[in-house]
Write a protein that binds this DNA or RNA. Structure first.
Lengths: 198, 198
DNA sequence: TATTTAAGAAACGCAACGTATCTTAGGAGC
DNA sequence: GCTCCTAAGATACGTTGCGTTTCTTAAATA
């Protein structure tokens, strides 16, 4: 093992730590995410982590930020409803329990460390490929004549993610088909139909 | 002080503990809500609390459940938009930082203790006077001709509270006027306009 | 080669959870 | 009114995990 003697530094080390942190989050979730665990997994020790991040929450957020979201194709099933259902399902699968657990956990800590709240907010409001996906789906529906022309605010574009996240946080479990359909049929599609073009 | 010798029991004691718990939550928030703190404030000791509730989260939920929500009048300003804005503002004020911090905190713990998630879900989905307030506001708007007749699902009725809560949890701070107006104008009013009567 | 920087190991203090042990008050039964 | 039993209250404990301190030593820099 050449590892046992060599000592990583700077960017290389940081990368290894963030990878380890992500792995720990994926395996155990935020509730069992410990700084010690990350250090051990990364083959280093706690002070090295604390020299880089102020606390556990910031480490978790850094690990999250480092993941580049995988952009997948935009659902195109031929109808607004099924496109949206596909999108909501994808959000629910991908956002996953872990992500939401993390938001809850980080947020819970944010009340002790206000800077953390700012970091989390920055992460959540940063432009995501998701909003553009929503826009495309809606534009296609308009082109097909399923909807009148609409003006989509940023708020309207982020609402799908907000709806799914809220449901996760308040339910604490994976959303079933029925719930997703309810969010689409009873909230988001009505919203789109009720928007006015300006 | 006759207190110093007397020993409360049963319901009387339980009441005192829950009152103390609520006071601690109000003063320090869930992040600094400690079992020891509640015990001291209630003039008792930790084991007494642990004989009644399995853990910190259940104690907090019990304290919350015991609070009877104060029903206030239903906004009636003569227009749907201003009624809704008044309602959203009221929710934001009343739900308050504390409540949402608590949901985040309890939820974060719920990933360790699954029973807690069930209790929280029960608390959040239980019928509240709020949904009836929403219904009344909308019915008045229909009567005035501001909206076509609509069928209000349970999901649509709970959406105002969901929207405000999500915003709190992801922002970690009091919602300002602008944000509340955005939720009303760009999400909830469009939703209502887009609902169909069945 | 000498100097400086930061990695890594070990241990600590601290807070808070949840538990175990014991004493004692006060209600219930006789 | 006396005895018994339940539960209150005090104290102390074991554990986990955060965040810190101290010290040694590897590796980059000059």
């Amino acid at each position: 093992m050449p590892e046992s003697k060599s000592r990583r530094r700077g960017a290389e080390l940081e990368r290894a730590i963030l990878d380890a942190a992500w792995a720990e989050l994926s395996e155990h979730g935020y509730a069992r995410f410990t700084v010690e665990g990350v250090a051990t997994r990364a083959g280093t020790s706690k002070p090295v982590l604390y020299r880089r991040w102020k606390n556990r929450a910031e480490l978790a957020l850094a690990a999250w930020n480092q993941r580049v979201p995988v952009t997948r194709g935009i659902p195109d099933t031929g109808s607004l409803r099924t496109d949206m259902l596909a999108l909501f399902t994808r959000i629910a699968r991908r956002t996953g329990n872990m992500m939401t657990e993390m938001i809850a956990g980080v947020m819970a800590e944010a009340f002790r460390h206000p800077e953390v709240a700012d970091l989390l907010r920055a992460r959540l409001t940063q432009p995501s490929p998701l909003t553009e996906t929503v826009r495309t789906i809606v534009e296609r529906a308009v082109a097909r004549g399923e909807l009148p022309p609409v003006t989509l605010s940023h708020r309207a574009l982020r609402t799908p993610l907000d709806l799914v996240r809220n449901e996760y946080i308040t339910c604490g479990q994976t959303l079933d088909e029925t719930t997703l359909a309810e969010l689409v049929d009873e909230v988001y599609l009505p919203l789109l139909r009720g928007l006015r073009a300006e």
